[in-house]
Nucleic acid binder design. Structure first.
Lengths: 381, 381
DNA sequence: TTGTATGCGTTATCAA
DNA sequence: TTGATAACGCATACAA
């Protein structure tokens, strides 16, 4: 406890204090070679008394590899991203690795575009990239470096990581609405970024379009509204969609956050949900249950956990626990969807109000019962 | 682009490639000394061609200080914590500092208790501690080390950082309910952790108790329910509170997340909010608006921004922008509170349903108009 | 079982 | 304006 104020204690000070050489201290620190019991005790005592902690930079330099895992993500306040990160953290917590966080926030901005450069700059032991698809150039450069890369929420032939089948997810949501009898179904999703954008929203839309096409339903161009990701931007987009006499009777939003924006828009227009408009989201974030949102559930935290475990495998580290299965998408039916005929304002108000209560008995089905298992669903491996 | 596969390029390789000495490369890298224009160009070309990036560990070792800012927080999925962190990130993004994240997740667990040890282990340039009050022992140890420490959401004489006046916040919320005519007001907050717990919940409760005391109202012990922080735990606690015939007519929750739990509990009991129970939260997180929650707004992101700027000051770095004021607490009145007499189920359902719409015209007042500015409010400086 | 010597990649202090 | 040379704190090969 007599730690000299100011600069940190070094291994040399410990060695001097214990009356041994530096490598001996290093040996008791790392157990890299046998040390006499008596010596070890003296060293341990000095370490304790001086309050010594090895300098990670020196250690990393000497060993030729750092103990940091670099995590790059688009925006930590986005609930889906946040949950994936939480899953990853829960794994790394059980390991000697540190976590360095890079939040791009505006991944589309010019100077932040080069994932590979960010990775190169950090000299980390490994990198996890969440919800950001590397460009071709990034991929080539990332493959050339030695440190492993794991992707979350993105599919790639170049790197390990699991992405969900967004197309199938879009189909699940749309089939649900179709099964309820809706024929005019709108879509609210991400404005596409040609360069670095996550294709999830676009793929969910493809699923939506496919199902409507198969059902022989034409999609009106103005039933699709795109905006940068976020609740307020989605609300604005949804206003375009809903503030018309010939509005759709249902909306599929590419994420729960955007579904919230749609609900907000509906309410500000005096439209009842689901009386006047049904809304389906995607993700099943924590607050979805609170507002009774019907949504397609994906297991966000598990994706982070699996990424962490994959990383440890690649680093040759023992896994703190077994790799969990990656659960399939499933529809969670709550109270923001109903048949278009069921427009009993008061009753549906009551239903929405008790939405959270209803969620306790909520039904989860991978596919809408009205359709059952459908073999035509294209399962991308 | 011909970067040799495998290990990263070193400064030595660049020097050889450019036909200069290592220190010369270092000079063009850091501009630490004049370099001939012609030489500089050759070096820059080599750097570009080899894809060289300085090794941060070596750089840190040599300079005697790292470029990482250590951030310690209790749980990144907690919306308030998440937003504070986002504010901090937005500042650090404009600087050369990296961010290393330590998420304690269960700060009460034995082995994770010693903030000072975590700090010592990392040898960071500076540390930010979010929503975790250092113990006395931690404080002493943290003061002894050279790297600056900034707190967020915690007040301390030892370290800079701003915490809000939680007692006043609790008073604002309780006065609002009192002004509506409630006389039986419950409280749902954090179960207290004697060692490392954040005192925010307890202080908000003190404000609540003070206001009721001043109003001559006795608080029944079973009108106060405490549970570990979280929506589900708060729901369970609220069930104890509300599943009685003599339940309170209003509940003040120590955070929005807990208010959500209370609302969930009310709904699962078939109670209308605000018809049967009014609910007030604390924080005004993003989703509060969505569900129309009346709450005490604090500016979470600003707290992170200010912490980041304080840090830069302490590190002698230029500030990327001016230090924003720290806004005062304010009551945001939405649709989860009403007078206890106003129990018109259908009407209040409709009100709740259109809560988000109502939020567009929401009234923000620092104090309930019924009370006006109250000089008796103890302002802890 | 322990100590000596060397190297990790970079910056800083000198001379030249 | 540039190049030797010596740190920075630690780990490892080798010798004792």
């Amino acid at each position: 406890m007599q730690e000299p104020s100011g600069r940190p204690v070094t291994i040399a000070q410990v060695a001097r204090d214990a009356g041994v050489s530096i490598p001996t201290v290093s040996r008791v620190l790392n157990g890299s070679a046998p040390v006499a019991e008596e010596t070890r005790r003296r060293v341990d005592a000095s370490i304790e008394r001086l309050g010594y902690h090895p300098n990670p930079m020196a250690r990393g330099l000497s060993r030729g590899l750092s103990d940091v895992v670099l995590v790059i993500l688009p925006n930590i306040t986005q609930p889906s991203v946040n949950l994936r990160l939480a899953g990853l953290i829960s794994v790394l917590r059980e390991t000697p690795y540190e976590l360095t966080l890079v939040d791009l926030e505006h991944p589309d901005s010019e100077r932040k575009r080069h994932l590979a450069d960010i990775v190169a700059r950090h000299h980390a032991a490994a990198t996890v990239i969440i919800s950001l698809p590397p460009s071709t150039a990034d991929t080539l450069q990332l493959l050339r470096q030695a440190a492993p890369v794991v992707l979350v929420d993105v599919r790639s032939d170049a790197f390990p990581g699991d992405g969900i089948d967004d197309i199938a997810g879009g189909m699940i949501a749309t089939r649900h609405l179709l099964g309820l009898g809706h024929r005019r179904i709108g879509f609210v999703g991400d404005a596409e970024d040609r360069f670095i954008g996550n294709p999830a929203s676009a793929n969910r839309r493809h699923g939506y379009e496919q199902v409507l096409f198969d059902a022989g339903i034409d999609i009106r161009p103005d039933d699709i509204a795109l905006a940068p990701h976020g609740m307020d931007t989605a609300k604005a987009a949804a206003l375009d969609l809903l503030d018309r006499s010939d509005r759709p009777t249902a909306v599929f939003a590419a994420s729960d956050v955007q579904a919230f924006g749609v609900m907000d828009a509906a309410r500000s227009l005096g439209l009842d949900v689901p009386g006047d408009v049904s809304v389906v989201g995607f993700d099943d974030i924590v607050t979805a249950r609170l507002v009774g949102l019907t949504t397609v559930r994906q297991h966000l935290e598990v994706s982070g956990v699996r990424a962490g475990l994959r990383l440890l495998e690649l680093l040759g580290q023992p896994l703190p626990f077994e790799m969990p299965e990656f659960p399939e998408l499933e529809l969670v039916t709550r109270s923001t969807t109903a048949s278009p005929g069921d427009a009993h304002p008061i009753r549906s108000m009551a239903a929405a109000l008790t939405g959270a209560a209803a969620s306790e008995k909520e039904v989860s089905t991978a596919f809408d019962p009205a359709f059952g298992r459908d073999e035509r669903i294209p399962r991308r491996k």
